[in-house]
Nucleic acid binder design. Sequence first.
DNA 1: CTAGTTGCAAAGAGTTTGCATGGCG
DNA 2: CGCCATGCAAACTCTTTGCAACTAG
Lengths: 140, 140
Amino acid sequence: MISHKYVTRQRKDILRCLRQNRDRHLSVDDILRMLSDEGCAVGKATVYRFLDKLVQDGEVRRFTSDGSAVALYQYNSCEQDDCTEHFHIKGSACGKLEHLDCERVKRFFAHVRREHGFEVDVRRTVFYGICRECLRNGRG
Amino acid sequence: MISHKYVTRQRKDILRCLRQNRDRHLSVDDILRMLSDEGCAVGKATVYRFLDKLVQDGEVRRFTSDGSAVALYQYNSCEQDDCTEHFHIKGSACGKLEHLDCERVKRFFAHVRREHGFEVDVRRTVFYGICRECLRNGRG
DNA sequence: CTAGTTGCAAAGAGTTTGCATGGCG
DNA sequence: CGCCATGCAAACTCTTTGCAACTAG
């Protein structure tokens, strides 16, 4: 999972920031601001370059905010496994990314492949919608 | 569905281009090039502005290509209805957007709401994966 | 040591905006 | 004819790149 062998001060800080915010999606500027506020300033280009690697390694997920062109990043680890065995649901209102482990999802995708000839890519597909909490709070 | 009351030469051309390519996603530059090749040149700003409206009206869908920041647009109509009653699957290899009408999809999303408290937004959610044709041709 | 990383600043890509002109309704 | 749309170019935003200095392994 960890293919970036060089461990620098900057990389530690970026990873820490992403991990501390695993339930949020962050823009590059968010990361820069947070680290700068903590007194751990990092160069912008460094953040971009490292995020690219993390995305390629599958350790971070890249989204795009509806409307604008800013890329949003979110830590993708889920302790137990490599995230290919379950599905991702993302609250449109709150931005939270949750992992949904459910037999029915798998059966459903098996159905889509069998009956519709379409092989869903679990890594790329995200369900967007309103999460439990936002429903309760009347958001969305 | 049609809230853009002004019908100009440019808007007709842009819509025609999108409709003729309903099975592909187009970048703004694609549209500009195609129209220019047909001798129907349109200003870049006009394309951006009109696409914004179409996306807001739900007549066009906006994607973002993996990796780069280019926005991709695709005509969203499916003759029969307004696309809220079925689901969208998009081939990662070929870029084709298909409409999947299937009782099981609805039942599956009902399950997600009931058991997981998550209300999937049909309009925003797209399944990515490999379509029948690409599977057959060994693509992806 | 040496190959990979960092940070700056400059370049690049994509998109938006201001404003004078043009054209639909 | 009034109001909205168009087109150009300039401004802007986000991201990438080149390069010299640095540093982990």
